[in-house]
Amino acid sequence: MNVECKYFGMIAEITGTASESLILNDASNIAQLDEQLKSKYHKLHFVSYQIAQNQQIADTHIELNEKDEIALLPPFGGG
């Protein structure tokens, strides 16, 4: 399965790109996708973020579909 991933803020700095296509190995839900991303980008273990599926903040158990648009959103500071 292929999904499109978008990264914001410090997440994009960790991944080195603002977006990429990702081929999922065995991942079929958000939690498994998160595990795959963390194994690809180890520094994701040390930052906080939420995951959106098709522009909606998603719970971990939500199933993934081909061509889903995934976004990793970290909290931003203020000023």
């Binding site: 930052v47 906080s48 973020y49 939420q50 995951i51 909606q56 976004a71």
Partner: peptide, 17 residues
């Protein structure tokens, strides 16, 4: 980008970390 946020009855959901 606009992301939609659902109201959570019990706001105990943990961030991915």
């Amino acid at each position: 980008t606009q992301l939609s946020i659902q109201k959570r009855k019990q706001q105990t959901q943990t961030a991915h970390k």
